[in-house]
Simulated scan of single mutants.
Amino acid sequence: MALVPMSQILNKAQAEGYAVGGFNMNNLESLQAIIETAEEERSPVIVQLSEGALRYVGIDYATACVKAAADKATIPVALHLDHGSSFEKIIECIRYGFSSVMIDGSKLPFEENIALVQKVVEAARVVGVSVEAELGKIGGTEDDHTVDEREALMTNPDEAKEFVERTGVDALAIAIGTAHGPYKGKPELDFERLEKIRNLVNVPLVLHGASGVYDEDIKKAISLGICKININTDFQQVFTAKVREILNNDEKVYDPRKILGPAKDAMKEKVREKIRLLGSNNRV
């Protein structure tokens, strides 16, 4: 089927009390792992590309591959820009056929963030593209730059309410204690803050930096209203671990298919694990 807006996927998840994965692709094998497993699990899925991944793969190649996969799929698939940095990048992705975009103005002052998101929402609405925004800073590493965890700011519930009302955004990423990249210890999520935000905000809520968060915390976050959970690092780690294992065990192997094929299969099992954890399996 053709790509669908992310809001179509998330509104159903919110109504039925589960979450859908925002799964990042970084090459062809990772895309195949995501789509094939979602099909097998009968799960809707949001395929995400960061700006770094777009530079690596190429926006034309990336969008063509995801569209081809979605056209063959029998599950809802959204193509989403993860952490869009500018209005210009948002427009470029919309023109290439993304069905969803995230504009990340979280590092801007509150009013500037609102103004930027309003501008994006106005443009995206015309063509039926969903918009995700972020309020509060997520610690850790995003692509090529680092957000100092000591400066990471939690989302203010009252500001979240005002932000959503004034922007008309389709989904809101909130900061409640997660971080991008690998964790050095156990992440401590502020569930009380999440509950307050959920009671004030009626759009689907998004949790970034979920790789490494304990399963019981993921389940609790979903029970308190998280509808989309972003995962990238977990997939990269299992993919790379399999590549390293193959190369270490056979120094003569040179066929990329014999290296990347098993890595894709390893990633598929991690995707399957996450889909079942989020409760999106058998929802199609």
Rank of each mutant, 00 (worst) to 15 (best):
E149H: 15
E29F: 01
I59Q: 09
A73I: 08
T37V: 00
K107C: 13
M154W: 12
V77R: 10
Q32N: 10
F87Y: 12
L79W: 04
G140L: 15
A171L: 05
E192R: 12
R198G: 00
Q14T: 01
A69L: 09
I231C: 07
E251S: 06
P44L: 07
K274G: 04
Q8S: 13
R198S: 02
G17P: 00
H180Y: 15
L31E: 06
D82A: 15
A70R: 00
S130R: 03
A171V: 00
A15D: 10
L54M: 12
V253C: 01
A173M: 13
I174Q: 01
G84A: 06
A2S: 11
S50V: 03
P76D: 12
K268Y: 00
P5D: 11
K107I: 13
I176Q: 05
E122Y: 15
I34F: 10
L194W: 12
V45S: 03
F191S: 00
F98E: 04
D234Y: 10
V201S: 05
E188W: 05
L260S: 11
D144G: 02
V213M: 09
M25F: 05
L153R: 14
D255H: 12
Q118Y: 03
Y56M: 11
A115C: 06
M154L: 14
D250Q: 05
D60Q: 10
I103M: 08
S280C: 13
K89L: 07
H145D: 06
R55G: 12
N11Q: 14
A33H: 03
E16G: 00
A241Q: 06
L28V: 14
I103N: 07
L260H: 09
V206Y: 07
Q14N: 01
I35T: 02
I75C: 15
K67E: 13
R276T: 04
E36F: 07
Q8H: 13
R166Q: 10
L3T: 07
Q236V: 12
V203E: 04
E188D: 11
V57N: 13
I218L: 12
R42A: 09
G128D: 08
A33I: 01
A175D: 09
K270Q: 10
K12A: 10
Q32C: 11
E151K: 10
E41S: 05
K264D: 00
I46H: 11
V131N: 11
V47R: 12
S85R: 05
E111Y: 04
G17F: 02
G139I: 14
C65P: 12
E29V: 00
I91V: 14
G261M: 07
E92R: 09
E51L: 14
C93Y: 11
T155K: 08
V238G: 05
S50K: 03
V77D: 15
H180L: 13
V238D: 03
Y56K: 06
G212F: 07
I259P: 09
A115R: 04
V45L: 03
V129L: 09
D143K: 07
E273D: 04
L247I: 14
C227P: 00
I231A: 08
L200D: 02
S280Y: 09
D148K: 15
L247C: 09
E122G: 15
A173F: 13
K119V: 08
R276V: 07
V126L: 13
A62Y: 12
L135K: 03
S223D: 01
E29T: 00
V57L: 15
Y214T: 15
V127G: 13
K67A: 15
N113I: 02
K264V: 02
S30F: 05
E36D: 02
L205Q: 04
L260M: 12
E88S: 02
K67L: 11
A124D: 15
P76A: 14
